[in-house]
């Protein structure tokens, strides 16, 4: 039996790897391409700043944009302090490896919970038990729970990456543990924490299921007035436009998808930019 020459084997292996890579990129490029092509024509100033009219068949998507913004801001306001405190406790204080392992397991599981389960959980806890009703508050808290694992994990990684010598120097200068965390650890972990938070924001902005039962309004052509108000949100609005309202111009659907996609991608790029900026500056 003849064996293939090493050079040929090399070629074949390279081609397969290259094809696999291409296969990953293609669908992404295709989705973005289609949405851009069909949606770009719809996106203009009026689309972004006007209320929907004629049962969402005309006008803009302002309330959905504002709603998504409120939900995401609320989610971060809730999840960042909580997640950061937990991360600081786990990484700087807790020496008990059993607790650490339990929490890590909990985080992994939390991250694996399907988003529709978060939605139902939010419905039961925040809407029902706490009587917040379907509201921005309930939706934000639900989204906040969902992004908590991302925030805790990335904050812990960022804290663990700060060299031990920073803590040692600070303590040897007579700083308390808390001062050491505040002045010698947190500032240097901030970029990583920020990156994780922004990734969480991107995720929260795009999810439908968690807001479905907890906040999302089908059609509410006004801006929310308080955190106990219902609100429209981009992902749910897109779902409604695509499946619940007959005779919507495709342009409007694609335009909505484009806005949502742009927000999510922008967040991801921002996270990448922050990370690479600080990685280039970092010297330890």
């Amino acid at each position: 039996m003849r064996t293939l020459s090493p050079r040929l084997t090399q070629r074949i292996a390279f081609s397969i790897l290259f094809a696999a890579t291409l296969f990953v990129i293609l669908p992404v490029a295709f989705i973005i391409g289609v949405i851009l092509k069909n949606g770009l024509g719809a996106v203009n100033w009026e689309f972004l700043t006007a209320m929907p009219r004629a049962s969402m068949r005309e006008g803009g998507i302002l309330p959905a944009i504002v709603g998504t913004f409120c939900l995401v801001a609320g989610a971060v306001l809730f999840a960042l302090p909580l997640g950061l405190c937990a991360a600081i406790y786990l990484s700087e204080y807790s020496k008990d490896s059993r607790l650490n392992r339990a929490v890590r397991l909990a985080i992994v599981n939390l991250a694996g919970v399907p988003s529709v389960v978060f939605g139902l959980f939010g419905l039961a806890l925040f809407v029902g038990f706490f009587r917040f009703g379907a509201s921005i508050l309930a939706g934000s808290l639900t989204l906040g729970l969902m992004i908590l694992p991302v925030i805790i994990t990335s904050s812990r990684e960022a804290l663990d990456a700060v060299p031990g010598s920073f803590r040692e120097v600070s303590l040897s200068l007579g700083a308390t543990k808390l001062q050491t965390i505040k002045y010698a650890v947190l500032p240097h972990a901030l970029p990583g924490i920020l990156t994780g938070t922004i990734l969480g924001v991107g995720r929260a902005a795009g999810e439908t299921a968690p807001i479905l039962f907890t906040v999302a309004a089908f059609y509410l052509p006004r801006l929310p007035r308080s955190i106990f108000d219902q609100a429209m949100a981009l992902p749910y609005h897109l779902y409604v436009l695509s499946t619940q309202v007959p005779n919507v111009a495709p342009k409007i659907r694609y335009g909505t998808a484009l806005v949502l996609l742009a927000i999510v991608l922008l967040m991801n790029f921002l996270a990448i930019a922050i990370r690479s900026h600080f990685r280039a500056k970092k010297k330890w």
Binding site: P163, S165, E168, V169, S172, L173, G174, H188, K281, K282
Partner: peptide
């Protein structure tokens, strides 16, 4: 105590 007794480490370790 640590204010009174300062320490210089083996590897220079200023903060970035």
């Amino acid at each position: 105590l640590r204010k009174k007794v300062g320490m210089v480490f083996q590897r220079p370790n200023p903060f970035p």
